[in-house]
Design a protein around this nucleic acid. Structure first.
Lengths: 243, 243
DNA sequence: TCAAAAGTGTTGTTTGTACACCCATGC
DNA sequence: GCATGGGTGTACAAACAACACTTTTGA
């Protein structure tokens, strides 16, 4: 907006700090995991929190988020990873020290590297989504919002491939859906649905890979160029899913 | 998030200003309209902009947005109106005066009251969505994002009723869809779809109203309690809708 | 030869789409 | 009566869900 005062003074108000916080998600061994850092100092010293940090004067929240992501994961090339703005949390008092407005992001990655506790954090680790509460600050809520958003977007966007390595099997792709949604899907129908959506995945000619050590080798696929899924791949309603 | 510096100093950085900007949308006479204010001073003096204002130290961005909404529309009770956080715009340089991070909201209302140019704005007015560009700052982009979001949410959320008065006909509800999407819908099928979704609308017993001055009086409905639409009411794909 | 995982086929049901048609009202 | 907008019926096609079956591998 930026209208609102007839004469403005940068220092007229108590200053706001703006941070970018990240819910970095991955799927490994059939479990949804999230990257957390252990806080080294008060408040919430010793508790786990989402990685994040201050937005610098010369960067956008998106740039700050990508920078933090690179620092926390130790990945050299973070440019291809899926990063998506979730929403902004601005309740007064959410940080006891000062007024902090936090722009939250969801990041999705395959095959997570070992995190190295960065400059800030005492320790960084992948933790199972279901076993991390309570987190510091209002991060429980941010994390829940991230999972809701990702789950909902799997229905109508070609998002699941962001959880998969460059080449993947349809079984792996299906496991992403099943893990995030927490429901089992019919394999034949899932397969048909995915292959019937132009641009969702494209086959890697001739390639195949054994998955569980046993069984028929599965054909490999790459992410396609489409971004949306038409028609969508719907979760079964199962009565009253929240908005 | 709020970790990141070992010793923090509120005044260590150039201060950020945080604003709440509003894309207030309505549907009247088959056209999508947006509430705009004319800027009284530089930068962008004389140009139209989205209403908005600074988030005060003791309020959240949501509270600030609702306060601004009440001020700009002059509505006494703004509590029932649909207000939804869109996303946050934080590029450096988006406001030439200082670093402004803007949390954008979409608000939906029926039957708009005449706006009264508030304290800030030289003038406030409802303008047709298609004829307002260019707006000040990056508001063209915010407005486009708002329309995209609302259009997408109409598919799977019980959102259209937010554009309708307390009691409305199915024809009016259909016009909301047609106006926001810019496509014509088959009336019989639309009707069945809406009525088949439990909790989307509920009939007002016995009530009926003439719409175009002619024709059969239409039955009246109220908004139901459901929030999501299962199965969704999909736009026809018509090739490559963007994400 | 067996278990495990990939992949194909088939069938009945549901849902969507396109239309034709009837109803109530103002002019 | 006729134009206008509300409301119902129907028939064809597409999509979905459930599940039986075949294939290819390692042990």
């Amino acid at each position: 907006m930026t209208v609102g005062v007839t004469a403005y003074d940068k220092y007229a108000y108590e200053p706001f700090a703006v941070t970018a916080d990240l819910a970095v998600l991955t799927v490994t061994e059939g479990a949804l995991r999230v990257l957390l850092v252990e806080r080294g100092q008060e408040p919430y010293a010793g508790q786990w929190a989402l990685p994040g940090g201050f937005v610098q004067p010369d960067e956008s929240a998106e740039t700050a988020a990508r920078r933090e992501l690179a620092e926390e994961t130790g990945l050299s090339d973070v440019s291809g990873l899926h990063l998506e703005q979730l929403r902004t949390y601005s309740e007064p008092g959410r940080d006891p020290r000062m007024r902090v407005v936090s722009v939250a992001f969801a990041a999705l990655l395959p095959d997570p590297p070992e995190p190295h506790g960065g400059s800030d954090a005492a320790d960084a680790r992948w933790m199972p989504y279901d076993k991390v509460r309570p987190l510091a600050f209002d991060h429980d809520r941010i994390l829940a919002d991230a999972r809701d958003r990702v789950g909902a977007k799997l229905e109508y966007a070609c998002l699941a491939t962001a959880f998969c390595p460059p080449e993947f099997t349809l079984g792996e792709l299906q496991q992403v859906y099943e893990t995030v949604w927490g429901t089992a899907l019919d394999r034949p129908n899932f397969r048909r649905k995915v292959l019937a959506t132009p641009g969702f995945v494209e086959p890697v000619p001739g390639a195949a890979r054994l998955t569980g050590g046993r069984g028929k080798p599965a054909a490999l696929y790459r992410a396609g160029t489409a971004t949306t899924l038409h028609p969508p791949l719907l979760r079964t309603p199962r009565e009253g899913r929240p908005a």
